[in-house]
């Protein structure tokens, strides 16, 4: 196990989305040929939460329900979230490929069911200890494995491999 680092601790305001958010539709250009990531980022999740991209400030944390990012093998959805300045995502569950893409792009993803929150509530995530604090309650979550935290701490898989070309921690 690697030592805990400052990148394991993330704090920011919650931005709420619901269940089954399909990133293919809501934050990629899959059905918008010829548009770029900046175009999508400015309108991300507009149909689900009007004004979402305008409200979102860098450092914000997306909090969602089940199956966030389903159907999306598109890495572009994570690039759009990075463009928005998203610091982390907390959801009850994620689409498998989306979860993987987030880690590869240095975007922390935590599986945790958070309910009763208001938009803007403070969230604190401790990746090393495996806990999420929100609304005065601490939720234990399975800690991310050291290998995954190392990729996140480096800022993504490319940066990790430049530092560790043999994949060893």
């Amino acid at each position: 196990m690697s030592a805990p680092s400052s990148s394991d601790l993330i704090r920011g305001p919650a931005h709420l989305l619901g269940d089954d958010v399909n990133t293919d539709l809501h934050c990629s250009t899959k059905y918008l040929p010829g548009k770029d990531n900046a175009f999508v980022a400015a309108r991300a999740f507009e149909d689900l939460a009007p004004g979402f991209a305008q409200r979102f400030e860098p450092g914000g944390i997306i909090v969602a329900g089940a199956n966030f990012g389903i159907n999306s093998s598109r890495e572009q959805a994570t690039h759009v979230l990075k463009l928005l300045g998203c610091a982390a995502l907390v959801a009850r569950s994620f689409g498998r490929q989306f979860f993987r893409n987030c880690i590869n792009n240095g975007l922390p993803v935590v599986e945790c069911t958070l309910t009763g929150l208001d938009e803007g509530d403070a969230i604190e995530i401790d990746l090393a200890r495996g806990c999420v604090r929100a609304g005065g309650v601490e939720h234990a979550v399975p800690p991310l494995p050291a290998e995954v935290r190392a990729i996140l701490a480096a800022g993504g898989l490319h940066a990790f491999l430049h530092a560790h070309p043999d994949w060893r921690l």
């Binding site: 093998s73 598109r74 890495e75 498998r96 490929q97 993987r100 893409n101 590869n104 792009n105 993504g156 898989l157 490319h158 491999l161």
Partner: peptide, 12 residues
């Protein structure tokens, strides 16, 4: 299934 970042790492 993987995406482009994984794929680049596999090729390298």
């Amino acid at each position: 299934g993987v995406e482009g970042t994984d794929l680049s790492a596999v090729l390298a």
